[in-house]
Write a protein that binds this DNA or RNA. Structure first.
Length: 758
DNA sequence: CACTAACAATGGTCCAACAT
DNA sequence: ATGTTGGACCATTGTTAGTG
């Protein structure tokens, strides 16, 4: 059987890539039908795939789903069989030649297969079949030579072009770094005795991934050119790893075609997600070369007019733009054909302010195209391939790490989308207190019916400054690293719609909005109230997010909510989002010389140095921070533009990720985290002058945080107070001034925390 | 050859101890 | 106190053994 088997392997392996990219299998009944239609026994199929025949039986019954190493091969086999033996319903194929050959088994019972295609358990099974690859690809040196650091499984060995199209011996054209030609087999021996890949998947053979030009695009995973390129005015496309590709395109349409064949892209962050589409960043010179205007005249909509030659040319060639049109971040795509591959390219036009200087710290102006490619590539590797403003990226990262849906088979054997556990699957309306004023459910709401969970903005009454404090010469501002991201860590947030309850018992594990009276709780006037963004003590019952009440309970106060909107379905939705952004932040800070293992003094010195560091890396860092803030902000995006009429809905409401309650929970958690540390500082006699979001200002005997932060006897930081360091939740020096400067601002009603940096 | 039951292996989740 | 890590626990997959 070796010949047939080898042929099967060859066919299978050659397209493992593609199959793995799709990752879709026909429903169990269809798997069996295909095998029987081809006259194959389970034994034969099992032999080809190097599994037991029982495993095949389990797959066909829906009792089990093949795991990754086999899954792609099995999917490919079925795809092949499906080409030869189309569904009878679709093709009316009454006479299938192989059917008779299916042994004497005239029991071609479609019945049993159809009977058991509905096991709902199998769905849950597949979701957890494999771990998230989210945090895998973080290489310490993102600029390093190896563009594909991910320990790929056997998918790597089989990057031949899709069906047919022979592309023998095509080698990576440019961009230098080739991925290490490591044998596939020796890394796949994880679970079962490896993949027994004979034939084409051998290391040294010609099944190389091909970036080069030409119509044969690499359909699957290895993207040798990296996630993006920056195109300059000299037809050079700079890749993230420092290389260049020649891009002969003279029009946008040609550019899009070129990009699809250039091996640009990034692998999905979640097994049910989608690989990132290739991104081409156009410098001003490149935009000019492609006939794009240097400025957008339609500033209001930020898009190219539909009758612009570039747009007309694209449309004529069969391309489509998203509803957004051709703006700074354009997405050009073609409708997916029957079993075709996705054809979609993202374009970012720098002269149209694709990279907001507030988020990217003027990266566009400071960096050469090559530097820009490296910086954006670092961001893409550590966060995700940019696809819009940093706020959009922050939001998209949530979706990329927790896709809302996955393909599942429905009752008829077709494919439909099903939920992914722990994700936000459908858009739900918020509870009335949670909604922003413009929302329909907020209509007619009293002001005291509003959940007000915002970041701190508080200044102490100057009259409450003690003589001892006034005698201190300095004011020191501390800034909490990634305060909102840190608050998102392990935060249980609601996943579904809110349910109203009267007289609930408080449960800190239940996310939601609670109506409770915390006005009776006395707090030190030298500290802000932990319960309100203004720091003023509440005057009566009000709505609070779960973290705020949990903190009240933690402080020892009885919490008796009167009513609540709760979400019993809950989970740590933002965990992977936090983890990825934290790792991105830490890696980028490490690039700037600030690592986790520094002493306090070394940390402060390193932070001082890093200010003047490489602008490209600084831009990445700035963008990562902006991604956090923007992502949280997008959770409660408010209506924009003139198109909105009061009381009506706006587009963001239809997003499953439009979740003001989650934003409120994160902010409440961040605020209580802040207060907890301030309370611990107060126990050591330190009271803040002012707080603004994640920045707090203290009077201090010296200009350094070391002069301020309390320590235990042996020099270690006192427990629970602010600690210096890079990790999220730790603090750095925001700025130091003289105390009179802060006092003066306070007298005038200004917040010194806002200005201490300058 | 196909199906079912029982068992080992694997991977994910949750909790608690540990380190900073 | 917070963030991290290790281990117990649980669900699922794939194998072996037995039966129609």
């Amino acid at each position: 059987m070796s010949d047939a088997e080898n042929a099967l392997f060859a066919a299978v392996d050659a397209l493992v890539e593609q199959a793995a990219a799709h990752g879709e299998l026909p429903p169990p009944a269809e798997r069996r039908r295909l095998r029987e239609a081809a006259g194959l026994t389970r034994q034969q199929v099992a032999g080809a795939l190097d599994v037991s025949w029982q495993a095949v039986a389990a797959w066909e019954s829906g009792r089990a789903v093949p795991r990754p190493p086999k899954r792609a091969a099995y999917a490919r086999l079925l795809e092949r069989l499906a080409e030869r033996h189309p569904q009878p319903a679709a093709q009316g194929g009454a006479s299938r030649p192989a059917e008779g050959a299916a042994g004497d088994g005239k029991r071609t019972d479609g019945a049993p297969g159809a009977r058991e295609e509905e096991p709902p358990t199998a769905g849950a099974a597949t979701e957890r079949a494999r771990g998230v690859l989210a945090d895998a690809p973080d290489v310490p040196d993102a600029y390093g030579a190896d563009a594909s650091p991910v320990p790929r499984t056997e998918r790597e060995g089989a990057a031949a072009p899709p069906s047919g199209a022979p592309a023998p011996g095509r080698r990576p054209a440019a961009g230098g770094s080739d991925r290490p030609g490591k044998p596939a087999a020796d890394r796949t021996g994880t679970a079962v005795g490896a993949v027994a890949v004979p034939g084409p998947a051998q290391p040294g053979d010609d099944a190389q991934a091909l970036p080069g030009a030409g119509p044969a695009r690499p359909a699957g995973a290895p993207y040798p050119a990296g996630p993006l390129v920056v195109l300059d005015g000299a037809a050079l496309a700079h890749t993230a790893d420092g290389g260049t590709l020649h891009c002969p395109a003279a029009t946008v349409t040609e550019l899009v075609e070129w990009a699809l064949g250039a091996g640009i892209g990034q692998e999905r962050l979640h097994r049910h997600g989608r690989d990132a589409d290739p991104l081409v960043v156009l410098t001003e010179a490149a935009a000019e070369r492609l006939g794009l205007p240097a400025r957008l005249t339609d500033r209001r909509n930020l898009r190219l007019p539909e009758d612009h030659p570039a747009v007309r040319d694209l449309l004529a060639a069969g391309w489509r733009l998203t509803r957004r049109g051709f703006g700074p971040w354009a997405r050009v795509h073609q409708p997916v054909e029957a079993h075709g591959t996705r054809r979609c390219v993202q374009l970012a036009v720098l002269p149209w302010d694709a990279l907001d200087p507030r988020a990217w710290s003027d990266l566009t102006a400071l960096a050469t195209p090559g530097e820009l490619a490296r910086a954006l590539g670092t961001y893409a590797t550590r966060v995700l391939t940019p696809r819009g403003s940093t706020a959009v990226n922050g939001l998209e990262l949530m979706t990329a790490l927790r896709p809302p849906t996955r393909p599942v088979r429905d009752a008829t054997g077709g494919w439909t989308s099903g939920p992914v556990a722990g994700s936000l699957a459908v858009a739900v309306d918020p509870a009335p207190p949670e909604a922003p004023d413009e929302h329909p459910v907020a209509a007619g709401r009293d002001s005291h019916d509003v959940l007000d969970e915002e970041a701190y903005e508080w200044v102490r009454d100057p009259d409450l400054l003690s003589d001892a404090e006034c005698a201190l010469p300095h004011a020191v501002g501390l800034d909490v690293n990634m305060a909102f991201a840190a608050a998102a860590n392990r935060l249980r947030v609601g996943l579904g719609a809110p349910l109203h309850t009267d007289g609930p018992r408080f449960d800190p594990k239940l996310p939601g909005a609670w109506y409770a009276d915390l006005s009776g709780i006395a707090t030190d006037p030298r500290l802000p109230s932990p319960f309100t963004p203004t720091g003023q003590r509440p005057t009566g019952p009000a709505w609070y997010a779960t973290p705020t009440l949990a903190y009240a309970a933690e402080l020892g106060h009885p919490v008796r909510p009167l009513e609540a909107w709760l979400r019993p379905e809950a989970g740590p939705y933002l965990d992977p989002w936090y983890t990825r952004l934290r790792d991105a932040y830490l890696a980028t800070m490490a690039d700037l010389g600030v690592t986790k293992d520094l002493t306090d003094a070394d940390f402060l010195a390193a932070m001082e140095r890093h200010r003047g560091a490489d602008p490209a890396t600084a831009g990445v860092l700035s963008a990562i921070k902006a991604t956090v803030k923007g992502g949280i902000g997008k959770l409660r995006e408010r209506p924009q533009g003139a198109g909105h009429r009061p009381g009506g809905r706006w587009p963001a409401l239809e997003r499953p990720t439009w979740r003001p309650d989650i934003r409120a929970a994160v902010i409440a958690q961040a605020r209580t985290n802040m207060h907890r540390k301030m309370a611990r500082m107060a126990a050591h006699g330190h009271f803040p002058l002012a707080v603004l979001s994640d920045c707090v200002v203290y009077p201090a005997p010296g200009p350094s945080p070391l002069d301020l932060l309390p320590r235990t006897g042996d020099g270690a930081p006192a427990p629970g107070v602010f600690r210096l360091g890079v990790s999220p939740g730790m603090v750095k020096l925001e700025g130091a001034r003289e105390l009179w400067w802060a006092a003066e601002l306070m007298e005038q009603g200004h917040n010194p925390a806002r200005h201490i940096k300058e």
